[in-house]
Computed example of a mutant assay.
Amino acid sequence: MTSYYPPITYIIPEAEDGWLLKTILARRMHVSRKLQSRLKLTEQGITLNGERVYISVHVRTGDVVEIRMEQETSDDILPQPIPFEILYEDEHMLIVNKEAGMIVHPTHGHYTGTLANGVVDYWLQKGVAYRFRAVHRLDQETTGVLAIAKNPYVHQHISEQMIENRVDKRYLALVHGTPEPRQGEINGPIDRDPEEPHRRIVTPDGYPSLTKYKLLDSWDQGSLVELKLETGRTHQIRVHMTSIGCPLIGDKMYRHPVYKEMMEAVDSVPTQEELQAHLPETAWRIMQLDESIPRQALHAFELTFEHPVTHEKMTFQAPLPGDMQELRQRLESGNLEPK
């Protein structure tokens, strides 16, 4: 016997009397054509007043439309008891605070130890069946709020909000230097670096990319910046901040220009002490600062979107993680010596 998730319900108002059911599904319940096709193949996928019907029928005021999705599991993901922080959960979605160093979904070479492995195990222990569907991704070393859908309808609905730029994603970053002006936007097309395809660069022939930023605090060696993504390119924040001369502290891929000077010096300078003597004081302090945190100092602190079922506007926040709090204290005190 087929098992279903709880139904998603819509009651026909007087203004929609006589509409086609397929119009209700598309325009009011926002069910994609792909999901409609899946629902039509199951016994209770689409019902009108409790009865299975064709979507070409007309509806009447007060009719109850329900869609039900079959329960699914992530059989291709190995359950592992990996702890993670839950910010919010209901029968439709799970919101977590991802920690640094954790990959979201198994990939080639990383089949275990991911957030997905931990979430699948968590659901298994609760005796519930869901397929792991991360609505968006965060880089392995980026911390913060991550949304996971529990069914295809919720995944599709939030994804559409993202495409339509109705999801507000805000980040906090600790960066080298101080951006000028203090508040603005970085409108720089992004594409792969032809010399290093795993990296991205700002290039006139790239994909349109827009990041808004606001300076929250600044010190002699760095700044705390709030960023809002208007597009979602790979490494967008890291690439854009580097492009304006304020790379993220600790970023090993998008590094401060002083590292070119360091590479030139390394061939002839064998020790750290001599390297420090060889480089300008500013360059040496930048390198010290990067060594004080083992990752790029980037945190997804806030995510706002419309709940796909209740239609309530919801905001989820994750506090600044310990390593970034410590780095901020170092910047405030001026003590940049790595531990």
Rank of each mutant, 00 (worst) to 15 (best):
I249E: 02
D75W: 03
L39Q: 05
P247R: 06
T315I: 01
M241L: 15
I286C: 05
Q156E: 15
Y10F: 15
T112Y: 00
M29H: 09
H110R: 13
E85A: 13
D323S: 14
V120S: 09
Q296I: 10
P81T: 06
P106L: 06
H58I: 02
S218H: 13
L20C: 05
D63Q: 08
I286E: 01
D205P: 00
Q71E: 14
G222I: 00
T23E: 11
R33L: 14
L303S: 00
Q156D: 15
T304G: 07
V59E: 07
E160R: 15
A134I: 09
L331G: 04
V145A: 02
T142H: 08
K126M: 03
K98I: 01
K169T: 01
D121L: 00
E302D: 09
N335W: 00
G101L: 07
E337S: 15
F305I: 06
P189A: 11
Q161Y: 03
T178E: 04
D193V: 09
Y5V: 04
D220M: 11
M162I: 15
D75H: 11
H240A: 08
S268N: 11
S37Q: 15
H198F: 12
P189R: 07
I190S: 07
P321V: 03
M69W: 05
V167K: 03
T203I: 10
S218C: 12
E196H: 15
Q183K: 14
S74P: 12
E337Y: 09
D76K: 11
E51T: 12
L174R: 00
V31W: 00
I237V: 12
V154D: 00
L94P: 02
T211A: 07
Q325Y: 03
P13I: 05
S37N: 15
Q272N: 10
T234K: 13
D191C: 15
Y111A: 14
Y10Q: 10
V239Y: 05
V128H: 03
L78H: 13
M1E: 12
Q329W: 01
H136C: 02
A265G: 04
A265V: 10
E66D: 06
R199Q: 13
N165G: 04
T242R: 07
M314C: 08
Y213H: 14
L216H: 12
Y213P: 14
R27A: 13
E70H: 11
H58E: 15
V202S: 05
V31C: 03
H136V: 08
D267H: 09
Q36S: 07
L35E: 09
Q296N: 14
A26N: 13
L227P: 04
Q288R: 09
K22G: 00
P189D: 07
A129S: 12
A116V: 08
V128A: 10
A173F: 05
S292I: 07
E274N: 07
D205Y: 10
K339W: 13
I12E: 02
P7L: 04
Q161E: 13
P257C: 04
I95Y: 00
T203P: 04
T315C: 08
T234Y: 08
R233S: 06
D193F: 07
V104T: 15
F84A: 06
L331P: 02
R27P: 05
Y5R: 08
E72Y: 01
L94S: 00
V64I: 12
L298Q: 03
I103K: 01
T9R: 14
L336W: 04
Y171W: 06
R38V: 14
Y54C: 12
Y88N: 11
